[in-house]
């Protein structure tokens, strides 16, 4: 236990470490996200991530949002385990044909109003995989998309920017 305390106390709170340009941007973006979240939902935004066929690169960067540098939850954004708990779906990958029905069902299970975010170049336009016998390509070929976050994969800050855009976009009450 002493070793753990020593390590934790020794490192301190890196989330608030002296900001470089990138960190300033992070704070600014995060606060803005929070403002929008409150304005629109009056509570935190619950995100259900769905990998519809990605190479897993996007998942690594989405995971990184939760590391102590970005600490996503302080902005009121958090990942939930079920689409039924979600306000937003964060979808990665070209939609593989084998995931097409699963994605539609996940979308149907998400309560209205819902924000659909396509994260990563593949989700935005099919990327390196495009449309084929095995891939439907972009997410919007399968379900309506509100916001696109390009990048292969999008870096955590790009993801945060995209979430901001999602909240700022006119909502489709689909």
């Amino acid at each position: 236990m002493i070793r753990i305390l020593k390590q934790s106390l020794g490192i301190g709170v890196i989330t608030e470490a002296a900001p470089g340009i990138e960190d300033e941007e992070l704070e600014r973006l995060g606060v803005e996200v929070l403002r929008h979240v409150h304005a629109r939902l009056g509570r935190s935004l619950s995100i259900r991530q769905v990998d519809a066929g990605s190479c897993n690169g996007c998942e690594l960067e989405i995971h990184a949002l939760s590391n102590p540098y970005y600490d996503l939850e302080r902005f009121g954004l958090h990942f939930v385990a079920s689409p039924r708990h979600a306000d937003a779906l964060l979808i990665t990958g070209p939609v593989s044909r084998h995931m097409e029905t699963a994605l539609r069902r996940t979308w149907q299970a998400t309560p209205v109003p819902k924000i659909i975010i396509a994260a990563g170049t593949c989700a935005c336009d099919g990327g390196e995989f495009g449309v084929s016998y095995a891939s439907c390509g972009a997410v919007e070929n399968v379900i309506p998309v509100d916001v696109k976050i390009p990048g292969c994969p999008p870096a955590p800050l790009d993801l945060l920017r995209g979430l901001l855009a999602a909240l700022a976009a006119p909502r489709k009450l689909s």
Binding site: D51, G53, S54, G93, P94, S96, R97, H98, M99, A102, F129, G130, S132, Y133, A134, S135
Partner: peptide
């Protein structure tokens, strides 16, 4: 589930 036809494309 994430078969994307990599060998074909």
């Amino acid at each position: 589930y994430v078969h994307k036809g990599i060998e074909k494309i």
